[in-house]
Amino acid sequence: MSEARDVETAWRWLLERRPHTRGAHEDALVPIAEAAYRHPMLARLYPFPTRGTLRFLRTPSPWHDADDLPIVGYAGPPYTVYAGSYASIVGTASNADEAVTLIVAHLPDDVVS
């Protein structure tokens, strides 16, 4: 499975559903990925679909911060948003845009600024 080396490429491959990349065959990922990309704060982060979730990373590989930022399960709706490392459920959303709002509301201050 190929991984993009930068944020812009990762988003492009994810949204284009580039073959042999993470999430390319996951129809349920499309609405949440599109909604997340429309939000400027999330579009700056590296999208990392894995195990039925979309994670947001501060940087491309190596992923030392994989459990730092909110995680969203994309099998919805409803969508479940978790705090980093699944510490808790921060909420559920009835659509992808509401899920993005929850994600952004729970980003650490150093990501928001």
Rank of each mutant, 00 (worst) to 15 (best):
A24V: 07
L14T: 07
R22G: 11
L14F: 00
A4L: 04
P19F: 08
E34C: 06
V7R: 07
I32T: 03
A28R: 15
R18P: 01
A24C: 14
G23H: 00
R18Y: 01
A10H: 00
D27Y: 00
P31K: 08
E34R: 12
A24K: 04
H25A: 15
A33G: 10
I32C: 05
W11F: 14
R12D: 13
R18C: 09
A24P: 04
E34Y: 05
H20F: 13
R12G: 03
L14N: 00
W11K: 04
R12K: 09
E8S: 15
W11S: 11
H25E: 13
A33E: 08
E16R: 09
V7K: 02
A28Q: 14
W11H: 06
V7M: 08
L15C: 09
H25W: 10
A24S: 15
E26M: 07
A10D: 03
A33M: 03
A10P: 04
P31Q: 08
R5M: 14
A28H: 11
E8A: 15
H25F: 07
A33I: 01
R12A: 14
E16A: 13
L15G: 04
G23I: 02
L14H: 00
L15E: 10
T21L: 13
V30M: 11
D6H: 04
A4W: 02
R12P: 07
E8T: 15
V30R: 12
D27E: 15
A10V: 01
E16P: 06
A4S: 08
R17Y: 05
R22L: 15
R17G: 05
V30Q: 03
L15T: 12
L29M: 14
R5H: 12
I32N: 02
G23L: 02
P19I: 05
P31A: 12
R18I: 08
W11T: 06
A10N: 02
T9W: 01
P31N: 13
V30G: 05
L29Q: 06
L15Q: 06
P31I: 02
E8P: 12
E26L: 09
V7E: 10
A4Q: 02
W13D: 09
T21G: 14
V30F: 00
V7S: 03
L14A: 04
R5E: 15
G23V: 01
A24Y: 11
R12Q: 15
R5D: 14
E26D: 11
E8V: 15
R5C: 06
I32G: 02
W11C: 08
D6E: 09
E8N: 15
A33H: 07
L14P: 00
H20N: 12
A28F: 06
E34Q: 14
R12E: 14
R17N: 07
I32A: 02
D27A: 13
A28L: 10
D6W: 07
D27G: 07
A10L: 04
G23N: 01
P31E: 09
E8R: 15
A33D: 03
R22V: 09
W13Y: 03
V30A: 11
L15H: 01
V7W: 03
I32K: 00
A24L: 06
P31H: 11
V7H: 04
R17K: 12
L29N: 05
R17H: 02
D6N: 12
T21Q: 04
T21F: 05
W11P: 03
E26K: 14
E26V: 06
R5F: 11
R12W: 14
E34K: 04
T9L: 14
T9A: 05
D27L: 03
L15P: 01
E26G: 00
